[in-house]
Amino acid sequence: MARRKPQSGEQTSDKPRSLGRDAMRRLLKNRAAVAGGAILLVIVLAAVFADFVAPYSITEGNIRNNYAGPSAAHPLGCDFMGRDMLSRLIFGARISLSAGLIGALTAFVIGVTFGLIAGFFGGKTDNIMMRFVDIMYSFPTLLLIILLMVFFKSSFSVSGVAEGGFRGALSNIDRATGGMFFIFLGIGLTSWLGMARLVRGMVLSVRGKDYVEAARAVGTPRSQILRRHVLPNVLGPAIVAQALQIPGFILYEAFLSFIGLGVNPPTPSWGMMLSEGYVAMRSHFHLVLWPALAISITLFAFNFLGDGVRDAFDPRQTRR
């Protein structure tokens, strides 16, 4: 198998496991990253099992408890409808984390597909596709997402009687997710450009490697080259790079809520709770404190874990 002989010190598809194990060992030694990971795990578990963890449902409340401070029954207090803040925070984690994860995933899928195609086919295809990316790079993301969100919300999240077809299907998804769906879509559609560039760059460098050239020379089919050589080399770093973007997507959701393009109440999200709460800061501090803390702690944990993962996968940084 001479054509797959790895060069010295080069990471190839042949030894992903040992590399991963190596990285994992380095990661586990990083206490900050481990702590971040542990916190995230708790939050994710709470979000997934919200139905069992949360003491109340998201709509359950007594209006007489409106804006009530912490008590035995409601340890984090109540919101304007007398609904339990803790429960809404736990259920809100679902939306905010999904906004981060699914937004990142959407961007990942689009970006990787785009980058793979451009990098792998090269030539004219590559040229046209990357010019398109360049153009979209100059597009003010903010404006694009506001226009897109307004457009989506007007076209698909419409009233009353269910409709058929594509429009109806999208509208039903949107309703089922409390308006989340379009947030994910909007975030994803405006955030894939960096990923596309990164992946294309990696594909090009992998394609240039001797063993890939060799594989091609002996007539290995394209699909097999893609599967055996390109994908394994590209996916790992791409996943890491995209995971590092997740905190940004969580903040993005908060920002969209602030400008009125967030989830539909009464569905809670951290961003929605935050933008409901900041107005009341000096009167009902708990309304802003908990969602802000939830976002901050999550981002903190993500960032420490992210830095740890990056250090772990890039061993040069820890050597001195």
Binding site: A254, F255, Y278
Partner: peptide, 30 residues
């Protein structure tokens, strides 16, 4: 690198990226 100064500097730095400005702005005003 890898001293207490390093860690605390990075904590401070990350605080910045972690607190949403929607909450920070009104808080600073207050």
């Amino acid at each position: 690198q890898n001293t207490l100064i390093d860690h605390s500097s990075m904590v401070v730095a990350m605080l910045g990226v972690s607190i949403p400005s929607i909450a920070l702005g009104p808080f600073l005003i207050w």
